[in-house]
Design a protein around this nucleic acid. Structure first.
Ligand SMILES: [Mn+2]
Ligand SMILES: [Mn+2]
Ligand SMILES: [Zn+2]
Ligand SMILES: [Zn+2]
Lengths: 142, 142
DNA sequence: ATTATACATTATAATTATTCTAAACTATTG
DNA sequence: CAATAGTTTAGAATAATTATAATGTATAAT
């Protein structure tokens, strides 16, 4: 229960009511060592597997979007079929495995800092992110 | 008609039958100076405006996907609402204007070449692309 | 040139991800 | 303990995309 207290505080700070569902989702998302990249469907599956409770799809969408808005989660555009979300909310780069459709964080020091020589006039740069698409090495070429 | 002959040849080389619809779409897409970034909806609108003919939505989807497969077009993932396509099929970077939702090519020499120090083991890198999100400069901050 | 075949286009239905709605529920406030 | 404001939920609605099956057309064979 003491770990949940953290999430309740976190939610309160963001002026979100700490409902049972939101705390449960916090547990699943933020109670882990490594970055978690997931789709809504991944999360719904995880909820019904790990917990024994059901949270309605609408609530999962609403909660994830509330977390994105509050900066607890980040949305990543990889393909247009579905949205990916990321517990690593910093500006960072990704490997995308085209075989497994898996997103993997690319450490910041794995790429030298990127300098944009000429920006669009009148606009400010909000983020600069690299997407590295990788695939299995052992393919036959013709 | 001589310009169409080019497209007919292009389609033939890709083993696509040069149907009236495909040639029309080629004209709209490839008969232009600058790179064209578009959604299916953009293209459908352009077809009904510029030409006076109607091409069914299914054919537009099928044709665009055939062109992507043949390497005439490239699909760009920007957000998960809809797919963007690009007449510039080379590996290249983009500015994305978050105000206008417009994609703009970033010249290759505008960014120094990106070196990935450590790749995922057993995988080969297929592409390295940068997405620069920009927005209007004159925002009020609190 | 005519016919046969394979492939393409079309309208429409189906699917899938996502968002909306409105009623029932719950956390917080007085 | 109310009253209130915000939340969850099942299910309907929407929007992008894909599938279906009938009709049409380009190409190959005669
Ligand atoms: Mn697609
Ligand atoms: Mn979204
Ligand atoms: Zn990440
Ligand atoms: Zn481009």
């Amino acid at each position: 229960m003491s770990r949940n207290a953290n999430f309740i505080d976190k939610l309160r700070e963001a002026r979100l009511r700490p409902t049972k569902q939101r705390v449960k989702i916090c547990e699943l998302l933020f109670n882990r060592e490594k970055t978690f990249h997931f789709t809504i469907n991944d999360l719904v599956k995880k909820i019904s597997e790990d917990l024994n409770e059901k949270i309605s799809l609408a609530t999962v969408y609403n909660t994830v979007h509330a977390f994105v808005k509050k900066g607890y989660l980040k949305e990543i555009a990889i393909n247009s079929d579905k949205s990916y979300f990321d517990t690593n909310t910093s500006t960072h780069h990704h490997f995308y495995d085209e075989d497994t459709h898996e997103l993997i964080d690319c450490e910041q020091n794995n790429i030298d800092s990127i300098n944009i020589k000429n920006n669009i006039t009148g606009k400010k740069i909000n983020s600069v992110e690299v997407l590295i698409k990788v695939a299995s090495d052992n393919q036959n070429h013709n």
